[in-house]
Computed example of a mutant assay.
Amino acid sequence: MRFIETFQFWPFLDTVVSLTAAFIFGTLVGAERQYRQRTAGLRTNVLVAVGAAAFVDLAMAITGPVEATRVISYVVSGVGFLGAGAIMREGMNVRGLNTAATLWCAAAIGACAGADMIAHAALVTVFVIAGNTLLRPLVNAINRIPLDEEASEATYEVTVTAQEAELPRLRTVVADLLEKAHYPAGDIEVVERGENLAEIVLTLVSTAVKASEMDAVARRIERLAGVTHASWALSTKD
């Protein structure tokens, strides 16, 4: 049997140590995520860490450290796709970025363990847990600070609900109104709403606006023929 010919006890023991370390460190990171009821909890973080460790350890055993670095780059890319599945967009807000970043870090922990850098894996684990726990009070304190809309960098969108037949004309007219108000639109998107209605969503180039000026522009847009509603909103979520 090929297994009997290739099996070596000490390299196998080294793999056991690497995967065990990845399992333990992944459990520590995942337990904190599970406690906070996040999308990617205990099992997901453990599997990501162990999987990354297994791939890197396999590459180390077959091709050595040089080629293992290429496998690590593939692990990073693969976990990137996995993390993308945890990200959800709700209107102008994006959720799940912290979960995706934690999965990425779990892969880094596993890669370190798979490369026999157990101490490095432990250090990364400490920093990941600290980032998800110790920084939480600071985040809450910052979020309680009143938002200065004129000084903050944010994404602003103007939404215009109008009759579909008027869309070609209104796209140009609304863009011109925003241009004259010194708030040019960098992107224009049309969303169908049914019943002969559609929305024109204009994302502004500006990262800071005056609320009174935007309210005035919205009122002017709402008075245009064919427009049923016009509003603007901001988002500071990355």
Rank of each mutant, 00 (worst) to 15 (best):
V79I: 13
G80R: 04
F81N: 02
F81V: 02
L82S: 00
L82T: 04
L82H: 00
G83E: 03
A84T: 08
A84N: 04
A84L: 07
A84E: 01
A84K: 02
G85E: 03
I87V: 13
I87M: 06
M88R: 15
M88Q: 15
R89G: 09
R89N: 11
G91S: 10
G91C: 10
M92C: 12
M92D: 13
N93Y: 14
N93M: 15
N93I: 14
N93Q: 15
N93A: 15
N93G: 09
V94L: 07
V94F: 08
R95A: 14
R95P: 12
R95H: 15
G96K: 05
G96W: 02
L97S: 06
L97G: 04
L97H: 08
L97V: 13
N98I: 12
N98T: 15
N98G: 12
N98M: 09
N98V: 12
N98W: 10
T99C: 10
T99K: 11
T99P: 12
T99N: 11
A100E: 03
A100C: 02
A100P: 04
A101R: 08
A101V: 13
A101N: 07
L103D: 06
L103Y: 08
C105K: 12
C105G: 14
C105M: 15
A106P: 10
A107M: 09
A107W: 09
A107P: 11
A107R: 09
A108S: 14
I109Y: 02
G110S: 07
G110E: 04
A111K: 10
A111I: 13
C112M: 14
C112D: 11
A113F: 02
A113E: 01
A115K: 06
A115R: 07
A115N: 11
D116G: 15
D116W: 12
M117A: 13
M117N: 11
I118A: 08
I118Q: 11
I118H: 14
A119W: 14
H120L: 14
A122H: 00
A122G: 08
A122L: 05
A122C: 06
A122Q: 02
L123E: 03
L123A: 09
L123W: 01
L123R: 01
V124Q: 01
V124I: 07
V124K: 00
V126H: 06
V126Q: 03
V126L: 11
F127I: 10
F127D: 00
F127M: 07
F127V: 11
V128P: 02
V128N: 00
V128A: 01
V128Y: 00
I129Q: 01
I129Y: 01
A130W: 02
G131H: 03
N132I: 13
T133V: 15
T133S: 13
L134V: 12
L134H: 04
L135A: 12
P137H: 02
P137Y: 03
P137F: 03
P137D: 05
P137V: 07
